[in-house]
Computed example of a mutant assay.
Amino acid sequence: MGTADLDTALDAARRGDERGFTDLWVSLNPLILRYLWVLVGQCAEDVASETWLHAARDVREFRGDAAGFRVWLFRVARHRALDEMRRAGRRPEDPSGLPGIGTDSTREHAAPDDTADAALERLSTEQALQMIAQLPKNQREAVMLRVIIGLDAKQTAQVLGKRAGAVRIAAMRGLRGLSGLLSDAAALTEAPPIREALVEPAGHARSTDSGAATRATGFVDEVTP
């Protein structure tokens, strides 16, 4: 669904039109789930449900366009995820239930950017998200929101409550750390390309920002201060 269609759906949802709200959910929920998965793992669906309940309650009061709604929705999702972490006593820096990937390698191993780019082409969506989940929390969120979801630095900063410069640095460091994990995994898998899978859920139209994943190429150069 394109930006204009999302604006139309948002306007309808604000008027109480159930179809408009459903269109927002179909377009944005797959991305919300992926973002939440790297924060709260298998609780992602429950937290997403809480996020949409909040949205359904408050959407009529929202003022802004579809781009602003997307930022607002991810901020709500993040707050619900932080609540879940506190309830579960989970450390955000130590995601559980992710097999086969050591947490120390992201701190030590930084392969060239072109190696990470090539490895992305060979990983499944699940493998990629598992690797992103191994990054420190600030880097993991910055990579997800900037590269996978497609928010710009200012929008990501609004979601995270940080400065845009800090977001750029966290994304740069996250991608450099991720490149080592990706290059190691490239030799171990023959999975289909990930770029489209990360932004185009099966059974749904392409994401509102169809170039989100492809911005991984050259992204480190863009965010270098």
Rank of each mutant, 00 (worst) to 15 (best):
S207E: 02
R87I: 10
L145V: 04
A166W: 05
W72F: 06
R173I: 04
D46G: 13
A166N: 14
S179N: 11
L198D: 00
D65N: 15
R146C: 15
L28P: 04
S96F: 00
A88T: 15
F69Y: 15
L182A: 12
G41S: 09
V223M: 14
K162Y: 11
A197F: 03
P95R: 07
I132W: 06
W72N: 01
E93G: 12
L33K: 03
T8N: 13
I194H: 07
F74T: 12
G97E: 05
W52M: 07
D46Y: 10
A48P: 03
V159N: 03
G218N: 01
E141R: 13
W37L: 13
D104G: 09
L188W: 09
L175R: 08
W52R: 01
A9S: 15
E50Q: 14
N138Y: 06
G161E: 02
D65I: 05
P225C: 03
V47A: 11
R34M: 10
G20H: 02
M85A: 06
G174N: 05
A88F: 07
H109Y: 13
R163M: 03
A128S: 10
Q130F: 11
L188D: 13
E141M: 14
A81R: 02
L98T: 07
A213V: 07
A67P: 01
E108T: 12
R15C: 11
Q42N: 14
T217D: 12
V147R: 06
A110G: 09
N29E: 13
S179F: 04
A55P: 06
A191C: 08
D114Q: 10
D7T: 10
E61P: 02
R146I: 07
F219R: 04
L160R: 14
R122F: 01
R163N: 07
L182M: 10
L135Q: 03
K137W: 14
E126Y: 05
K137P: 08
T217Q: 11
V26D: 11
L31G: 08
H54Q: 09
P112D: 04
C43T: 09
K162A: 15
